[in-house]
Design a protein around this nucleic acid. Sequence first.
DNA 1: TATTGTTATACTCTATAACTATA
DNA 2: TATAGTTATAGAGTATAACAATA
Lengths: 160, 160
Amino acid sequence: MDVGEREPVGQDADLNLPGFFPYRLALLAETVSHSMAQLYADRFEMTRHEWRIVAALGNRKRLAGRDVGRLTTLDKMQVSRALSGLEERGLVTRIADPLDRRNHILALTPAGRSLYQKVVPLVRAREEYILSALNEGEAKALDGIMTKLQARTEDLLRRG
Amino acid sequence: MDVGEREPVGQDADLNLPGFFPYRLALLAETVSHSMAQLYADRFEMTRHEWRIVAALGNRKRLAGRDVGRLTTLDKMQVSRALSGLEERGLVTRIADPLDRRNHILALTPAGRSLYQKVVPLVRAREEYILSALNEGEAKALDGIMTKLQARTEDLLRRG
DNA sequence: TATTGTTATACTCTATAACTATA
DNA sequence: TATAGTTATAGAGTATAACAATA
């Protein structure tokens, strides 16, 4: 990528975009997300939000609506929207909790569970393949790196 | 995060969303991106696309429109849209190349350069602070990790 | 009053394609 | 015919707020 005028522009502050960590991270996440979506978007007509909710419901028998939000980090509006779509297509059931009728008890239908069972092996295999690009030391470091960066940036967000 | 029914659901395939790499990466990138946008979105009324373009122009005297796309990984439509906004606000000039009038020569105006000079130290300081959450070994591993994962997933995307 | 969820609205982002003008 | 850029459109994602039902 050798483009543009590279004459010094006589300034102090400078930023090399392709080497800037937030930029690189955004690109990587987008590319990874894209490559995973290839596995469920076209074949199963699911958006990312919908897939996240199916994934959250997949290893639980049932779940309250508010907990889906916590598990998927989607807000209640996004959950509500995505659930409408999933319910319409018969992948999820949503029934009012008799003990507190504000709650909705969510569960995958047999069709939803079957979809989950089909997609999970695909995305796990792809995750594994992606991570196999790393050497042993890198793979070992990855979890700690992500945990620390997530904690640090969440802290920044909270403080403003 | 201890929610929902955890009884075994009697199935082979299973996915633990909070530990799933693509999910964690998407969250992290979103959080990082957010924490950077805090530095320019409100104060300077810039979208991410606009900031990327200003950043790409900042360390070059001038740039052809098509190269901005390559440098920022925005497509020509996104570039065109963002540039309209930047030009309207007097941050960028866009003049037709006399040698090939399809080309546009882009450059920051003095106001645009002044904005760049103000934002760059802020985002660099924040980048540094975020990365300082890592220990030495992790910091050293990070570049290789991102390069390898980016290459691997781009490869996946190309193959479908 | 507080909580759960729905609906409304607006803006940003992504994706594709049609179109203009230049070459 | 190919390329650079603009415009149009639709769908997805993000963000806030108003609202209804329930507790």
